[in-house]
Design a protein around this nucleic acid. Structure first.
Lengths: 134, 134
DNA sequence: TTACAAAATGTTATATTATAACAATTTAAC
DNA sequence: GTTAAATTGTTATAATATAACATTTTGTAA
């Protein structure tokens, strides 16, 4: 077996849930939601999440320990990710900006390290939350 | 009380430990190391860590759940952080590049969000680890 | 078409990371 | 000195994640 063309049963169940969600989901909230579909243990969830992250179908929002479906059709492997996070309503959006990704992919620091991956999280207030406060 | 000029006892103990460490430290490893100095409970560690992050003396490496002393004398409040992380030896270095910080601080996405903070983590192989493998 | 290896699954237990809730003490400004 | 904010101490528990082992499914190549 060289590659899986399709997602396995558990992977599909968990991806569907994340993909339909308007907000990032946490592992145990996923577990709760898929128990009726036969997934009973945390490890079943984490294994599916690991795989889905690996193949780029979902991303982990590190500062939130939560998972979001990839909103960028071109990123099949998640080696360059950027997100905006509203600190008020917690809305998370994947940033797909070729200028930004070019800048960061080409970034070289003085330490001589070769980067093959990055993750960027911006924090602030989304439009809705800004107008609520004014 | 408007501001603390100096760190409190627990904050100082924990900052000293992190500051001396060549690598990011995890909360429970910190706890283990400061038990001989009278800090017995996780919450004592987490409270000090929270405060130290808030005032910019340390940063949290989100992808590692670990803490590193600020290596950038100018960042008293940690609202714009960037790190390079070696995926082989786990060495973490704070990136202090004014070009990068200018680019990211000025970055505007099409969603109209106003960013007031960001965190960027680059992954790759450090010089040492590259030469080991070749 | 069966045999094989990789991938995925199932299950129990446990490790790791982090916070809730409440009481007491210390600190700095007035 | 009084006061309010900050810090500390303590017990319990919540939330996040992995170890270890057995079994089953899947794709592919003999």
């Amino acid at each position: 077996m060289r590659k899986m063309q399709n997602l396995s049963k558990n992977q599909q169940i968990i991806f569907d849930l994340i993909d339909k969600s308007p907000e990032p989901l946490k592992a145990y909230s996923i577990l709760f939601n898929v128990q009726k579909r036969g997934i009973k243990a945390p490890l079943q969830v984490y294994r599916a999440l690991d795989k889905l992250v690996e193949i780029g179908k979902i991303h982990k929002i590190e500062s939130r320990n939560a998972f979001i479906a990839c909103q960028n059709s071109s990123c099949q492997i998640s080696k360059a990710t950027a997100f905006s996070i509203c600190e008020s309503c917690e809305k998370v959006t994947e940033i797909n900006n070729s200028n930004l990704s070019k800048y960061l992919t080409g970034f070289k620091d003085k330490n001589g390290m070769k980067y093959n991956k990055y993750n960027l999280e911006f924090f602030g207030l989304c439009k809705k939350c800004i107008s609520k406060k004014s």
